[in-house]
Simulated scan of single mutants.
Amino acid sequence: MRAPKGFLFSAAAAGIKYRERPDLGLILSEAPATWAGVFTRNDFKAAPVLLGLKRREEVPRVRAILVNSGCANACTGPEGLRDAETLLEDLAGRLGIPPQEILPASTGVIGTRLPVERIREAFPALVAGLSPEKAHLVARAMMTTDTFPKVVSRSFEVGGRSFTLLGMAKGAGMIAPHLATMLAFLLTDAGLPSAVLTPTLREAVEASFNRITVDGDTSTNDTVYLLANGQAGELPSGSWDSFREVLSGVCRELAALIVRDAEGASKLVKIVVRGARSSEEAERLARAVADSPLVKTAFFGEDPNWGRILVAMGKLGLGLIPERVSIKLNGVPLVEGGCGLPEEPARKEMARPEFTLEIQLGLGEASFEILTCDLSYDYVKINAEYRT
């Protein structure tokens, strides 16, 4: 895994929720970086999200990201904001940078305050441990119910110069972005203006993190940060499209890793709706199928219960024409003209760890696709025991 130039990483165990496991991560850019951020649309925004939104309006360049797991610092009122600001001020003093140049991110249990003193006690080790070789440790420190760290690195060349983009993400449950209990940090040593980073990030997020769903719930803490420190040189304006492609690819890979690691999941399912009258209609139908508990439990049971798919779409009352609807599973016909076909060939495809469900509406030319997963016994167990 190649890290971009000029970025340092560190992780430490602060004992926020669990003992003797890293739960505090720090990313430091050796030079001020232009940046962009995308945040949750949930009305109950966590303290770090509120601070990130404020920085997005006021701070053109940043130097660091501080992330913790185990405590979301959400729904904690003015005290939660003060806790976050106190920690950022303390860390800024140790790093020798202004506190507003540190971007905060938190994930974990909602409604509990950060253990400020415990986190402060971990700062000396966190700062002393900064290294260009520890990105994977930060990715591990931000995990909650994740089973593996999610890191993707890509290098690209422009005009004989090599640039790197590194992405890391966490997320396994409460995933239905716009965004989801999902954090993602994207770092590049290419130099780009914020005016380019902001629309580029939004476009990449819309085509990746906003096209996954695990359980239909959107978190209070969803955050995606993109930092560009220019340590490998400025990227010429004629190459910005190349950067967009690399960024979109990294985001799609990270999004797929999140769904693969969904809480208790055993299947990664791509749902594709074609033949809709508009892209909005295609999206509504795809999400209805992807979020249906009945459909998702059928995925888990490897049961080609096509009736549940039709019900999930039909309940929206969009005026679908049953005689025009067809469904295929990995290319195997399951429904034709609104009626079921022999199920055994499709059942065999559902035994695979990954498969595609394609729905043809026969009404227009618009389409939409989304990644989802099955809903298992383990998902219920993990979330029933999450706070205990």
Rank of each mutant, 00 (worst) to 15 (best):
P177V: 04
K17P: 07
T86H: 10
L341C: 12
P60N: 05
R274A: 11
A176T: 02
S376P: 07
L187K: 07
S367D: 13
R277N: 03
S292T: 07
D43I: 10
P353C: 08
K315P: 05
T112Q: 11
D43L: 12
A36K: 04
F243T: 02
L137S: 10
S194T: 13
P60M: 05
A135Y: 00
E89K: 15
D378Q: 15
A122V: 00
E323Y: 02
D378F: 04
R55K: 13
L197R: 12
I370T: 14
T198L: 12
D189A: 05
D222S: 13
P199W: 05
L87Y: 14
L201S: 07
E58W: 03
G230I: 01
G80D: 08
L53M: 15
L329F: 04
E20R: 14
G249T: 05
E79Y: 03
D90L: 14
A346E: 13
E101H: 08
L165P: 04
C71P: 01
R324S: 09
R41G: 12
A122Q: 08
E283V: 01
S29Y: 03
E234A: 15
P177Q: 03
G230N: 10
L126V: 11
M1P: 10
V246R: 06
L318G: 08
R202E: 14
D43V: 09
V116K: 13
V269D: 01
E58Y: 00
A184F: 02
V332N: 03
C339W: 10
P293I: 10
L294G: 00
A282K: 09
R41W: 06
D374C: 01
L227A: 07
W35V: 00
T218Q: 08
P342C: 11
P342H: 12
A13V: 00
A204V: 07
R61S: 09
G77A: 04
L66Y: 09
A346Q: 01
A351N: 08
R387L: 13
F148R: 15
L320T: 02
L88R: 12
V109E: 14
G249R: 02
V158C: 00
E234Q: 13
K54F: 12
A172R: 08
V62R: 02
C71D: 13
V152N: 04
Y225M: 05
I327Y: 05
L197V: 09
I110E: 12
A282C: 09
G364S: 06
R260Q: 15
E121S: 15
A255D: 09
W240E: 15
G173L: 09
L114M: 15
N305Q: 03
F156E: 11
K45W: 06
P78F: 11
L226I: 06
I27L: 14
I258T: 14
F300L: 02
S248H: 08
R41M: 04
A232Y: 00
G96F: 02
L294M: 07
T86L: 14
R63D: 02
P304C: 06
P104Y: 01
A207G: 08
D261M: 12
V325A: 03
P104R: 03
P115I: 10
R2M: 11
E365K: 13
